[in-house]
Design a protein around this nucleic acid. Structure first.
Lengths: 156, 156
DNA sequence: TCTTGACCTCAAGTAAGGTTGAGGAATTAT
DNA sequence: ATAATTCCTCAACCTTACTTGAGGTCAAGA
């Protein structure tokens, strides 16, 4: 292996555990950029390993691909990011994490109140709060829930 | 409004804030069952309001529709569930919640170690742990990540 | 009775996040 | 030099969780 600073996509995939198809997908979405060699093949910087790692970590924290793109836009475009640069934008991980933990703890408190009685009533049980619906944890079309302002909840 | 025990789908939708189309979808997935009247229209039990509420709460906690189906199978099929029945199966909410909080707190600890140095290296940073990849918070094809045993991570 | 409005089925569309495959070109190893 | 990899593009497909629309029926009020 030469000490060229440019690595092909397969190398990047091997070094990050991210599938080649996923890397191309991320490139398409603007999360990562590639040079091309004479033959038209992608060549990445070694520092893109860190960049991709950032993407994977951010995903685990629940950021969408679009959001990750915004996070990454906080990096300097010209020079290769330093550790300090990464440290800086990673701080937003901490915020997301804290917010999520807070939300879950709130739900836990509500659960403790509601679960004992088995009510699960929309009016009695604060768990089913329409305002929380946009903040769902699982997969699914959350964007739709934000738009349709349904939830004219009555009593059970 | 009569005190008939059977309500049409629109009523159920109004009482839960769940869209009519979603209720039909849930029926198709086996989360809820409906009788039919002479004209072939769905008629639900009043207790299905609670059932649907359960579904919505479970979704907020990150359960998938399939998982919710399993949770609901813990209810008695014959008689209408009592509050005690609901209380019982809702206990699994608490477990999910505790597990999620624990996972996030673990990540927070790791972040505190890793973020300061800006390393974000796959080998150095415990944040990017392949074993955690199945437990992602955001949307996306998690099922695929469980199957492909990639992640032969090297160093940055 | 007649006219809304609510309901029915079934097929197709939508969003996110990728994967898979076809058909072909570029690299690398022997 | 040739075979085996790797890489390329582009289109189509997949899952979850629903929504939307077409074309038609049912029910309830005036």
């Amino acid at each position: 292996m030469k000490t060229t600073d440019l690595i092909p996509i397969g190398q990047l995939a091997a070094r990050t555990g991210v599938a080649v198809s996923a890397i191309r997908f991320y490139e398409d979405k603007g999360l990562i950029r590639a040079m091309r060699n004479a033959g038209g093949q992608r060549r990445f910087l070694r520092s893109d390993v860190r960049r991709l790692s950032f993407v994977m970590i951010a995903q685990q924290l629940g950021f969408t691909v679009a959001e990750i793109g915004e996070l990454l836009s906080g990096l300097p475009q010209e020079r290769t990011p330093t550790k300090a640069d990464w440290s800086k934008i990673s701080a937003q991980f901490r915020e997301r994490l804290d917010a999520q933990i807070e939300r879950l703890e709130l739900m836990r408190d509500r659960l403790d109140v509601c679960i004992g009685c088995g009510c699960l009533s929309l009016s009695n049980c604060a768990l089913y709060n329409p305002e929380d619906r946009a903040a769902r944890l699982g997969p699914g079309p959350r964007y739709l829930m934000e738009r349709n302002g349904a939830a004219k909840a009555a009593e059970a």
